[in-house]
Each structure stands twice: as structure tokens, then as C-alpha cells.
């Protein structure tokens, strides 16, 4: 089973939920798709880490063969190509590496070069296989690194936990595509609810079953309770606002390893959504 953990709003507790869920399961593959700030590894501190580069293709033009027909410029829907002063120009950060320009060039003047956009790290801690996507600082698109992290980690084990990026755009869609279940995480605040509702819509659109974890709850937040009742979103777990949890988080400790009651709660959640704990 593959569970995606997402929240819309950043800082709601995705990594907290994903790490503790995997730790409660005992044996799991944990994939960090929050490639702009992959924090899961801080908790796991995986051993025997190997690193593989992630590259993306970029067109290169052979000036000898190019006749300036602009087929490539006209084809590119992202407008990553321009043709000025009798030479094609490519804008790497706009290019989506679709390869279309090479396909449409009647002169065979478009080749490919590969550009490193990040790395995928793999390591182990206890029975957790930790896969971490790391986007190179300054890169615009996280998608190639997310794809590489997923292809490294998916179908490696019975239970896979995907720690998704914040937001509800392309990187999130890419991260949840292969998930069997979406665990939404929110804080009981207007901001948390607003952004959680956005990803909830997205997951429903993609036909994924969803459940909610409410993090740092001091008291039930009526608009959130109303939303869940109205939209039929099951509330699977409520984590109270506790100083101790923040402290363990700051230490890089995995909370369920220090709190048996919390571990039992995560184990129950996992069972409820159809996953199994070792």
C-alpha cells in the first residue's frame, strides 16, 4: 500500500505525520518528495546512503543543420525557444524537456544534452528504507527529481509512505499520482483549512480516498469540523498541541519511539486506512 501525506499549507505537520506513520509501521519505504526542503532524513538519519544524479534533457542546436524554419519555436507550448539573429536560443528553466523540438525539426538539427537538476539519496535506518529527493538550489521545476525519487522507492516494499511537497500544484499531483490513499494533515486554523481543502479537492479529482489528521489541536475548530462533516472527510487522528512533541521534533527524535500511546494511535490509523504494521 502506498500512502501519500499532504497538507496544502507548509508547516502543518506532513513530515511529522509521514515519519511517525512509517516508524509506527516498523517496516516501510519512506519517500521524501518535498524536494525543495527534504527534512525527513533529519529524523531518520539513514545509514549507507548512496546518491544518484537526476538530470533533465535540454535541446542543443547544430548551427550547420539549422535552416531557421522555426518549427521548434512554433511547437514549444512553453515558449522556451526563441529565434533571433538567425540563431535558436533555449531558456533552460522554461524548458520542460518534452523532446518535441527534436521530433519536429525537419533538418535533424536538434540534439540533447543533460543537465543535473538534483539528486536522489537512498539509505536505511532499522527497517525503514529512506529515499530522499533533493532539488538543486535555484532550479524552477521539482517534478524531475520527484519522479526519480518515486521510481527509486515505489514497489520496493509492502508499505510506502510518500512525504509530499506543500501546495497543490504540479509537484503535488506528481507525488500523489501513484498513491492508494491520501492522508491529509492540517492545523485547526483558517489558513490550514483553506489549503487543506484545496488538496482535498485535488485528491478527490484524482479519485483517491482521503482521511484527515488534525495536528496541534488545542480545541476543535468549528469551520474545520463543519467542512469534514459536509464533505464526508473522516477525521482519523487528532494530535493535541503539546510542548513535548515540539521539543522532540527540535531534537530530531521520532515521537512514536518515545511515546507508546502515540505509537498506538498511528498504528490504529494505519490499520483503519488498510495498511499493516509489523
Amino acid at each position: 500500500m502506498t500512502v501519500a501525506v499532504l497538507s496544502g499549507k507548509g508547516g502543518a505537520g506532513k513530515t511529522f505525520a509521514a515519519v511517525n506513520l512509517a516508524a509506527a509501521a516498523g517496516k516501510a519505504v519512506y519517500i521524501d518528495c518535498d524536494v525543495e526542503e527534504p527534512n525527513g532524513r533529519l529524523f531518520w538519519q539513514p545509514r549507507g546512503v548512496t546518491e544518484r544524479p537526476v538530470t533533465t534533457a535540454l535541446p542543443v542546436f547544430d548551427p550547420e543543420k539549422c535552416v531557421g524554419c522555426r518549427s521548434c519555436v512554433d511547437f514549444c507550448r512553453f515558449n522556451a525557444l526563441v529565434y533571433v539573429k538567425k540563431a535558436p536560443m533555449v531558456f533552460p528553466e522554461v524548458c520542460h524537456a518534452c523532446g518535441g523540438c527534436a521530433l519536429v525539426c525537419p533538418q535533424g538539427a536538434v540534439g540533447e544534452q543533460h543537465r543535473k537538476v538534483g539528486v536522489v539519496e537512498e539509505g536505511n535506518r532499522d527497517q525503514i528504507h529512506v529515499v530522499t529527493g533533493v532539488l538543486r538550489t535555484g532550479e524552477v521545476s521539482a517534478v524531475p527529481v520527484i519522479r526519480a525519487a518515486l521510481s527509486a522507492g515505489l514497489s520496493r516494499g509492502d508499505l510506502t509512505i510518500i512525504d509530499c511537497p506543500p501546495g497543490s500544484g504540479c509537484p503535488v499531483m506528481e507525488s500523489v499520482r501513484e498513491a492508494d490513499y491520501c492522508l491529509l494533515v492540517t492545523e485547526p486554523t483558517a489558513f490550514g483549512l483553506h489549503n487543506m481543502a484545496m488538496v482535498h479537492q485535488l485528491c478527490r479529482l484524482l479519485g483517491k480516498p482521503c482521511g484527515l489528521l488534525i495536528n496541534r489541536e488545542e480545541a476543535p475548530y468549528a469551520p474545520l469540523e463543519d467542512y469534514c462533516a459536509r464533505e464526508g472527510l473522516p477525521i482519523l487522528l487528532r494530535i493535541p498541541y503539546r510542548r513535548q512533541l515540539a521539543q522532540w521534533g527540535a531534537e530530531g527524535a521520532v515521537a512514536v519511539r518515545r511515546d507508546e500511546a502515540l505509537k498506538a494511535e498511528f498504528t490504529r490509523l494505519l490499520r483503519e486506512i488498510g495498511g499493516t504494521a509489523v
Binding site: 512553453f78 515558449n79 526563441v82 533571433v84 522554461v94
Partner: peptide, 10 residues
């Protein structure tokens, strides 16, 4: 859809 500035410059 994207790259409007590039297309306009072209």
C-alpha cells in the same frame, strides 16, 4: 500558457 515574455519578445 507560459513564457509569455519570451514569446512577446520574439
Amino acid at each position: 500558457q507560459g513564457g509569455a515574455g519570451l514569446k512577446a519578445a520574439q
